[in-house]
């Protein structure tokens, strides 16, 4: 197992520490972006971005069920956007264990980050990435 993109995702080995995303905060204007970029996309300052731990939780912004999978992925599958409390709105997949059906997710629900293989396929079984799951279990 390896982390698909270690620059985006921190998986601590110390007990009690939980995984998180790694973003950038602009020292000049304060905005937070994910993934990281060296120049602030809002105030366009170069060299003012500092690494911040973000995205342990989020709020579901939107969701759909994709019935067609690109090579290396499976369908049907949830695809979602999540609003992180630090600011960014990011694309994500949903963690395993939920029935992929209408009514299981509801926009606005609290989500939490989990670390799982990118997909249960030979291409991606050994690549760990971030996904989100409902913080309090599915709606139904």
């Amino acid at each position: 197992m390896k982390i698909l993109n270690p620059d985006n995702l921190r998986v601590p080995t110390e007990p009690g520490k939980t995984p998180c995303l790694l973003g950038n905060r602009c020292r000049d204007c304060g905005i937070v972006v994910f993934p990281k970029m060296p120049v602030c996309p809002s105030c366009h300052t170069n060299g003012a971005m500092v690494e911040v731990e973000i995205g342990r939780t989020g709020k579901l912004y939107s969701h759909t069920i994709s019935h067609f999978a690109p090579a290396g992925f499976t369908a049907p599958a949830f695809q979602i956007f999540v609003d992180l409390p630090e600011g960014p709105r990011i694309f994500s997949l949903v963690g395993a264990g939920l029935p992929v059906e209408r009514g299981v997710l509801e926009d606005g629900m609290e989500m939490q980050l989990v670390v799982e293989p990118l997909a249960d396929t030979p291409e991606h079984r050994d690549e760990l990435t971030y996904k989100f799951v409902p913080a309090n279990g599915a709606r139904t």
């Binding site: 993109n5 067609f68 992925f73 695809q79 694309f91 990118l118 990435t129």
Partner: peptide, 8 residues
């Protein structure tokens, strides 16, 4: 790389 498609 996360499997996002245009339709999504």
């Amino acid at each position: 790389e996360l499997g996002m498609q245009f339709t999504t």
